[in-house]
């Protein structure tokens, strides 16, 4: 008997190759695309990152947060604080935003982890509201009406518009693909196995000696830090900040939830497909305004009622595909 244990599948190898080529093409976008293309892809990356992170949180640890806008906004405000008040180069503020957001998530977690299930969800929302109202009180950062980044500060990123746009664009690629890659790596690690065990059977994983609360807590703080990075990216993309935009529940949580639900919760591929579907819908339907959001909400409910595992879950069950295998498969070499 000569079985081999493998994590990769033919589909996953093929997908890897396609992904490498795609990333190379994306990185070259400043030379083949317009500024509008860069910005659209940049925004795509923001949602790809947020969706992957929220999916890790809700789909694998069962922590359904509707307050991730706390961390987007906080990261964005760190960028503005350091760049405007401390005079940092905005680019260097980005990693600081990630670290600071992870740090603020520690006390936040201590509070909201006292709430269970759905109450946890609304608790995270209250925290986000506290952040929003709190920053609206800070007149030094523009209060409720916000602040724009002055031209001399923006110029620190790069002298010419081309390189500025390109730099922020590459940052977006790095954060979008990076978040996806980190979630994937995390799910393949020991923590990932623990998470899958929790998702599949909480009682069993307790008896296996997995310290669920600790794993959940670590994942929450990690996701918060990464979300802070996305917030920093958003700040650089917009070079203007207001509490309402930075802590928007619609932009940073509602859309993200719809993306994950429609794409397929609890799968790595789901958020990617969800983001693509979301951007396609937006391109075609955004002119409809409020009707567009109504359709999006109805679509999410429809998916939840009919295919709870989302579009990717449906494809996966049909064709047994996996682009990002996290489990192990036993392949038999003996062909009969």
């Amino acid at each position: 008997m000569s079985d081999i244990i493998s994590r990769s599948t033919l589909a996953s190898k093929l997908a890897g190759l396609v992904a490498l080529v795609a990333i190379a093409v994306l990185i070259a976008a400043p030379w083949w695309g317009s500024v509008a293309t860069e910005r659209l892809i940049g925004e795509f990356m923001v949602y790809l990152a947020l969706a992957s992170l929220w999916n890790l949180l809700a789909g694998y640890t069962g922590l359904v947060s509707v307050g991730q806008q706390s961390f987007v906004g906080f990261g964005a405000y760190i960028v503005f604080s350091l760049a405007l008040l401390a005079g940092w180069n905005p680019l260097y503020t980005v990693p600081m935003a990630g670290i600071a957001t992870a740090l603020i998530a520690i006390p936040v977690a201590k509070l909201v982890f006292r709430l269970q299930g759905a109450y946890f969800a609304i608790g995270t929302w209250v925290v986000a509201e506290v952040f929003r109202l709190g920053f609206a009180q800070m007149s030094i950062l523009g209060g409720g009406s916000g602040k724009s980044m002055p031209a001399n500060v923006v110029k620190q990123i790069a002298e010419t518009k081309f390189w500025r746009e390109a730099t922020i664009y590459w940052l977006a690629i790095a954060i979008g693909i990076g978040a996806l890659a980190m979630v994937y790596a995390l799910l393949r690690s020991r923590i990932g196995l623990a998470l899958t065990a929790i998702r599949d059977n909480e009682t069993a994983s307790v008896s296996l000696g997995i310290r669920i609360e600790r794993v959940k807590y670590l994942v929450y703080v990690f996701v918060a830090g990464m979300t802070g990075l996305v917030g920093a990216l958003f700040a650089l993309q917009k070079i203007r900040i207001t509490p309402d935009a930075a802590f928007s529940v619609n932009d940073w949580t509602a859309f993200v939830i719809f993306i994950v639900v429609i794409g397929g919760i609890g799968t790595i591929e789901g958020p990617i497909f969800g983001t693509i579907i979301y951007f396609l819908l937006r391109e075609f339907l955004a002119d409809l305004g409020s009707i567009y959001l109504l359709i999006l909400g109805a679509l999410a409910i429809g998916v939840m009622l009919t295919t709870p595992k989302g579009i990717w879950g449906f494809i996966q069950a049909r064709f047994n595909l996996s682009l990002f295998p996290t489990g192990f498969r036993v392949l038999s070499k003996d062909k009969s």
Partner: peptide, 11 residues
């Protein structure tokens, strides 16, 4: 139920 009610809210 949480996600469905969230969708309902937006609707």
């Amino acid at each position: 139920p949480l996600l469905v009610s969230f969708g309902l809210s937006v609707i």
